[in-house]
Write a protein that binds this DNA or RNA. Sequence first.
DNA 1: GCAAGGTC
Length: 918
Amino acid sequence: MAGGRPIRALNVAEKPSVAKAVSGILSKSPSSGGLRVRDGRSRYNKIFEFNYTIQNQHFHMSFTSVTGHLMELEFEERYRKWHSCDPVQLYQAAVKKYVPEDKLDIKRTLEEEARKCQWLILWLDCDREGENIAFEVVEVCTQANRNLNIWRARFSALIDREIHYSMQHLVRPNQLFADAVDVRQEIDLRIGASFTRFQTMLLRDAFNLDFNTDDKNIILSYGPCQFPTLGFVVERFWEIQSHEPEEFWTINCTHNSEEGIATFSWTRGHLFDYTCAAIIYEMCVQEPTATVTRVRQQEKLKYPPHPLSTIELEKRASRYFRMSSEHTMKVAEDLYQAGFISYPRTETDSFSERTNLHMMVQEQQGHPVWGSYAQRLLDPEARLWRNPSGGGHDDKAHPPIHPTKFSAGEAGWSQDHHKLYELVVRHFLACVSQPAVGAETTVDIDIAGELFSASGRMIIAKNYLDIYRFESWGGSMIPTYNFGQQFTPATLTLDSGVTRPPPPLSEADLLSCMDKAGIGTDATMHDHIKKLLDRFYATKDSNTRFSPTKLGEALVMGYDDMGYELWKPYLRAMMESDMKAVSMGTKSKTEVLETCLQQMKACFVDAKSNKEKLFEAMAVFFERSNRSSTNEQNTVAEVVRRCNICQESEMVLRRKPDGNFMVGCTGFPHCKNVVWLPGSVSEAVVTTNVCSSCAPGPIYQIQFKFRRLEIPPNYNVDHLGCIGGCDDILRQLVEICGTGSRNSSSVQGRGSGHTPSSNSAQRSNSRGQNACANCRQTGHSSDLCPSRVSRGRNVRSQEADAQEGESSIPCSSCGAPCVLRTANTANNRGRKFYSCRPECNFFVWEDNINEGGRVTRGNISRTTSNPSRSGGRGRGGRSGRQSNDVAFVSATGEPISGRCFVCGDPSHFANVCPNRGR
DNA sequence: GCAAGGTC
């Protein structure tokens, strides 16, 4: 029997929609007294009121909501200004949680309601973030009312039975889950703020970042999610750049029958070894009769997609409509707010058994385009229905994205609203449909012991493909073949191709990479991608493919040169695993925080001391700026010599904002002559001493003081040096210590032949000349450098090509000169060969030429023909020694009489050549 | 002015 005075309970959900939905469910019973709604202080977060009974105890329920996190973590005031402290202090600086301005209304509502209540029931989402928000709510509410009895409702779906069950089985909130989020927040803040301040203040004003923006104060941010996201983009970019095209060979065969043409492909796929491919090809050509060894018929099914999660929605909208993930989420949010689709931020890709899928399909029956399909789905005789298969993910908070309200299009919708709603509906209808059915026929043939196969497909039932217009499954015809049947191919060609680099990452690829590596959450991934664009770290082309900008590549290159993998997803993965440990109670919050921050601080200190790597990497892509710090402006520059390049201005000693010294021309930017000095210089003063050996003079000597710990013990801390080129000590110290900046013209000045030692410096150029970072020639940038095709992360040695093109022999085929070149394929890298004009196609390995310059081994012509272009040629070969009528086919499709590629003899092929192997 | 995570 219910008894006692009703208890007043404050219920809080993570978002207004959940407060409304749960209140709606709980107030359905007649004893609830109906659902009342009143305004809170925040216009978005209403307060619902109703009566409810928990285990015979009457309650008066107030149900309101927050909007995600109520609090933010921030440094204490004295650390907030960027110049208030050394960024390294941010690893210990005091932090505090506070309610930001725009959440104060919600806070006041909670305080006011909490004062009136005895219980607090937390309905936050059932994940770690939700648990953390629960404790934020607890903090605010208990400050207003210390006597609250605090409970947590655990629910995984907004379904009547589940919600009532949750209310009847309240538990206590889980501090460990909330702790895990506290750890993440603090690490993210300290790492993000320290690295962002460090790299922004270090690099922004030191280089001319030529972005097309009015905002001069761009931020070079670092974050544990945004940087690995950039890392994926840069890594693919480098992969593309370092790709070395490799030639491969394949044998293709076609056959014409009365029913049509069949194209057979080689079971071996392709071979990179030309000799092997050619030998096999010759064997086939000599005995070209094909025998059918197997005819196989199989039923194939193409399954509909799993129910729609956020990431899949973003990926598919990008693929099908080229919508950015960020825009997709904006449009999805609109549709959700207006009640047309379910909550769009979900990891779940399977429907709960309790979901009434039929009812959702029924709603769509009236649609002018897909209504008839929905009707067919519901007709048992059509046998189109199939219970959806799940993808194995469940966030226990939200169902897969599905339509919640019928619409044939609303007046206020943009094209993108229409498209996205259509995608959600069609995807949902596809999920509950039968898979497409096809009949596949595969025919295997044997030619001279080599296997080839061809296949065809007939679509028997399209099923879900009828509604899911975004996917297709092509049908293709194949003539009828019988086991044992023999025929002569219409064409049999040895075709070449080259390997191609992968394409730049598409938005869908990027989302997959992030998902796989655990970078971001379903609700934030699109933000990280957008951040790359906003920060000028990457660009996206019209095909939704991402490439790094110079800035993005330079930053990643800088950290990579330091030996850090800060741009890889490992840090986040480690944090994720630590967070899991905290939430399971196997590690404490303090322990994880201390360890992680200690490691990151050490890394930060190290990165700071290696900042020249960032400078060098930036210098590969950007011109140094003449924007100088206040200190530098106040320094009276001391003249060292008259500029030996422009002959007009003075070269003066300067100290850069990063603390390093240089001698630069005052004619900058017109003249970009500069001499970089060792990074270990702590003091430098121009003296009145004139160097007696360097010309043209006078060149004033500089009194240097080096930092003891940064130079080898056998060097003096004090040194009177010259920048004219005579000073070996200065040159050695640049070699040893670097310059703390790029240094292709260090110490001896431009053109002195000095080779810089550091990795990035090798890619760097002379100051401001916009010379190629790769070959140091002007006239093109490094990304267009003809010698950079294979740069990747290591500049390919050009030395092997030194004699390339300088030597020639007469072509033994056409008489034209063949030029010496160097092979760059995997099997023959570095091997020299002579090749003739492209139209001749002749080439010979250099080591196949005897001392008299005579070609000892020739080469059959390579075919690069498209099989269809050579159709009909070479038909009718007979097995025998020589079969000129089954010919090799040239690039232009012309038959070439067969001859042995080993000795060039036209009377036999290489597989039987008596000279082979000698 | 900085992160990432909620959400409006």
